[in-house]
Design a protein around this nucleic acid. Structure first.
Length: 276
DNA sequence: AATACTACCTGCGTGC
DNA sequence: TGCACGCAGGTAGTAT
C-alpha cells in the first residue's frame, strides 16, 4: 500500500497517538510477520517498554522503545489502527500492542506481506533492509552528482532501478510513474543513456513529487488511510498513475498503461519517448 | 557482480 | 452463479 509519503503520514499520526505509552502485552496472530521467527521472545521483550519516538527511514517505520527499536514495514497493504480501549481483532488483524492504559494499537494487513523486526536500541540502521537504502529524497541528502553516477553505472531500465531504493529511497509504483512523467522520461529508458539535462530533471522531479505528496498526506486510491483514519489527497494531483485513457495534462495525448519489470506502468507516449 | 524472476498472500473485478 | 485469471502504494530470496 504505502510509499514514502503514506508512511510518513502514518508516522505523524502514530506520534500523536502512542508516544509515551507503555506495553502491557503484545499479541501476534501471524507468526511469519515477525522476522527471526521467535514471536514469543519479541512479544516478551517489549513488555514494560515505553514508546519514546517514532522515526522513519525510507518506507520503514522505527518505533523507538526504552531498550529496543521495533522496525515495521507495511509492504503493500499494512495499516495501523488505534483504539482507546480493548477491541477484538478483526479478520486481518495480525499484531496487537496492548498498552498499560488500556488502549491498543492494531496492525492489520490483508495480504500479510508486512514485517516486524526487533533490534537492539539504536541499531535499526544496521538492519539489512535499512542498511542498503539510498538517501532520503530531500535536497540536503539526495545529491545530484551521486545520483548521476548511479544512473551512469546501470544498464537497467530507469523505472526498476528507481524502485530498488538504492539511488534514492521512498519511490514506489505510483510516485515513480509520476516522477518520470514530470521529468518527461520513458520508464524503459536505460539508466545509463539519460542525458545530463534528463538526470537533473529527474532528480528534481523525485524531490518535488514526494515532497508534495507528503504535504498532501499521501495518495488514497483503494483503501489507504493514515493512523488517524483519514484519507490522503494526492490522488487529485496524479498525472500518470491510474490515468490511462485520459489526456495528458501537458499535451493532451492519451496516457497509456503497459507493464515494465512486472509492474503496471503509466506514461504519456508523446512526452515520454523511449528513444529520448 | 549485475540483472531478472519468483515467492510471499488475499480479495476484487473481468470475462467466459 | 461459478470459476479461472490477472491485478494490486513492496521487498527478499533465488536463478541466470
Amino acid at each position: 500500500m504505502p510509499e514514502l509519503p503514506e508512511v510518513e503520514t502514518v508516522r505523524r499520526g502514530l506520534e500523536q497517538l502512542v508516544i509515551g505509552k507503555t506495553i502491557q502485552s503484545v499479541s501476534v496472530y501471524w507468526d511469519r510477520m515477525i522476522e527471526g521467527g521467535d514471536k514469543e521472545k519479541v512479544a516478551f521483550e517489549l513488555v514494560g517498554q515505553t514508546v519514546e519516538a517514532i522515526q522513519r527511514r525510507g518506507k520503514f517505520l522505527i518505533f523507538r522503545y526504552t531498550a529496543n527499536d521495533l522496525i515495521s514495514h507495511l509492504r503493500m497493504e499494512g495499516k495501523y489502527e488505534f483504539f482507546p480501549q480493548e477491541t477484538p481483532p478483526s479478520k486481518h488483524t495480525h499484531v496487537i500492542f496492548h498498552f498499560t492504559d488500556g488502549s491498543e494499537l492494531h496492525y492489520q494487513d490483508v495480504r500479510k506481506f508486512g514485517r516486524f523486526a526487533l533490534v537492539a536500541k539504536g541499531k535499526s540502521a544496521e538492519y539489512a533492509g535499512i542498511a542498503k537504502l539510498g538517501p532520503e529524497p530531500t535536497n540536503d541528502q539526495f545529491l545530484l552528482g551521486a545520483f548521476q553516477q548511479g544512473l551512469a553505472k546501470s544498464k537497467k531500465a530507469v523505472k526498476p532501478l528507481l524502485l530498488e531504493q538504492k539511488l534514492v529511497t521512498g519511490l514506489g509504483n505510483i510516485y515513480v510513474d509520476e516522477a518520470l512523467w514530470q521529468a518527461k522520461i520513458h520508464p524503459e529508458r536505460l539508466a545509463c543513456t539519460l542525458t545530463t539535462d534528463e538526470s537533473i530533471a529527474l532528480h528534481q522531479a523525485i524531490i518535488d513529487v514526494l515532497g508534495k505528496a507528503v504535504i498532501a498526506g499521501g495518495t488514497t486510491i483503494r483503501t489507504y488511510h493514515n493512523a488517524l483514519g483519514k484519507a490522503g489527497t494526492f490522488q487529485v494531483a496524479l498525472h500518470a498513475y491510474g490515468q490511462q485513457g485520459k489526456p495528458c495534462s501537458r499535451c493532451g495525448t492519451l496516457i497509456v498503461k503497459t507493464k515494465v519489470a512486472q509492474r503496471g506502468t503509466h506514461f504519456c507516449p508523446n512526452c515520454q519517448k523511449v528513444e529520448g
